[in-house]
Design a protein around this nucleic acid. Structure first.
Lengths: 126, 126
DNA sequence: CTATTATTGCAACTCAGTCGCAAAAATAGA
DNA sequence: TCTATTTTTGCGACTGAGTTGCAATAATAG
């Protein structure tokens, strides 16, 4: 169902994603917005923004949840076909605009494929 | 460094992977071997077997840790280039023997790519 | 402005995974 | 085979991400 009322928490969280082009981890949001929004609220708002196709989520290599702005997603088609890149040095994650074709597998019906690429980002290559 | 001594726990855990070709979640192993091996020991043994290149690990769509037997891995080259397939109905995970090429990305140094494919397995397609 | 309904904060909880430490088990060497 | 050494195990307590129920608060319709 998603967002019905425009609340302060929702505005604050949307601002976080407007000012950053990269993905943001929920744990990071909780730390930074601690004085302003409750942890449960953060989880609940992000969940709704994902339902609305505003954000998409995925887990990093540690199983931590991240969110990023959707560009081509909406609430009908929300497949996150693009891969995510996590820097092993600084931990930062970017959405890579690259359309990895979802592989077909015999005898199985494939819905989604999530790819997490690991390596060093531009700033961390010394 | 990996396994140094052949203990009962190690034998038991190796048996679990010999009799199954599919991946096994740590939580499942803990439930099934509860009376025989302590939870901490299970985590520690699996970690060592991964160091030795006997098993490889990955996280499923819920962030839960799974292990599977390595076929072409060893302690020097341990890249898990193959994708994993998780059935959204029964939760079972298989290693798919398909060599997805690791994508190259401009300005970044890429080490590993992990792909989790989601869909319905043969038994769950109705 | 008020009634209704969605949203929030709070505190307590769940559950996977980790850690320190003393006890037990495996191995090497005599 | 026995003993000393070192690894491995079990235990219990802990950590930290994410969830839940509920009462209080805030947004919206009318």
């Amino acid at each position: 169902m998603g967002i019905i009322r425009k609340t302060e928490s929702i505005k604050l969280l949307l601002t976080e994603f407007h000012k950053k082009k990269v993905a943001v981890s929920v744990t990071d949001l909780i730390k930074r917005l601690d004085s302003k929004i409750n942890k449960s609220t953060i989880y609940r708002v992000l969940e709704k923004l994902e339902e609305d196709g505003v954000l998409h989520s995925f887990l990093d290599k540690y199983g931590i949840k991240w969110y990023a702005k959707c560009v081509a997603c909406n609430h009908k088609e929300h497949y996150d076909a693009h891969p995510h890149f996590q820097c092993v040095s600084c931990g930062k994650i970017d959405c890579i605009s690259m359309d990895l074709s979802i592989p077909k597998i015999p005898n199985r019906e494939v819905f989604v494929a999530q790819t997490l690429i690991q390596g060093k980002c531009e700033s961390c290559i010394s």
